[in-house]
Design a protein around this nucleic acid. Sequence first.
DNA 1: TCCGTCATGTAATATGTTACATGATTAG
DNA 2: CTAATCATGTAACATATTACATGACGGA
Lengths: 175, 175
Amino acid sequence: MVRASQTDAAVLGALTTGPMSGYAVRAAIRDVLGHFWSESYGQIYPTLRSLEQSGLVDRREPDGAFAITASGRERLLELLSAPARVEPARNGLLLRLFFGEVLGAPACRALLVEARDRAREQLDRYEAIEAGIATEPEHASRAPYWRITLGAGRHGALATIAWAEESLRALEEQP
Amino acid sequence: MVRASQTDAAVLGALTTGPMSGYAVRAAIRDVLGHFWSESYGQIYPTLRSLEQSGLVDRREPDGAFAITASGRERLLELLSAPARVEPARNGLLLRLFFGEVLGAPACRALLVEARDRAREQLDRYEAIEAGIATEPEHASRAPYWRITLGAGRHGALATIAWAEESLRALEEQP
DNA sequence: TCCGTCATGTAATATGTTACATGATTAG
DNA sequence: CTAATCATGTAACATATTACATGACGGA
């Protein structure tokens, strides 16, 4: 395997919904995969070019839109089957809280409140999206998987809210 | 602000527990901050040198151990007070599950089982560490903050377990 | 003596973002 | 007409990992 790029997988995956421009690929990744994935232009255009050179993607004639080829679909399956790259753990919020004695209790409380409120907003968003999926019967076979990723967001947000509230209570009992 | 590096913060933070070698800084970050932070040698040694040149760290005479200076402590507070850098979202597991129709239901089930089992193991580890904190009275003033970061791990692991089980049940109902 | 760990470091490589340039097309 | 959006792209920069080199030191 030359390069097991998850960026390749995200771009090829986006193209399984139909041919589109690089600009639209970026918009799809931002709007559809946004809560668990991101790519910048600086990645997407070079990736599309390299996919085209490998014959995994070609450009539709009239409008120049990128379309996934049959071998592109094979490659996507191969990439999705490969083990996920382990991202190095890097949680700036927890880093700050771990050194909370240095940072001070009031600043830590503010961080927790902010994290809780952001999680509440996300929760609302996930529930709105979930309601929207039911109204799109044309994607019935994909909907269960979309619900699974939304479920991850929902459970994660709920966990963040519960954790932040528990931690705020614990800090109350300190001076 | 020249550079609001979270790596600087992690290294300076590690040194607040006492002077140590670069090797030991790396071990401390791996063993103590491991569940939410990581740094490699390739980052730590250059960082220590640049911190030394800025007078935020100096080398203790007999053994050459790195020690945080008074201005290093100021700088740490400044770094911890800065907003956390938003890491680009990149969850390889969710990327695979989102395109679960391409990947196939059996492979998705396997991913979910693996995620659930890993979360269970982590949960055990967090609980063991939490039990250990109580037995170290010399760090009483830091213990509440350590418990907060452990709580994040515990809630996150519980959320992952609940999500994976819910998702596995949902996939059962599909063909 | 030999192995494992401690210790310091660097070069090559990978990855990715940001900011900018450029121009077409479309909506108001 | 003009502003916004669509569209393609790149150069500079930032960040980080991996793999390797080097050597000391202590214990079996």
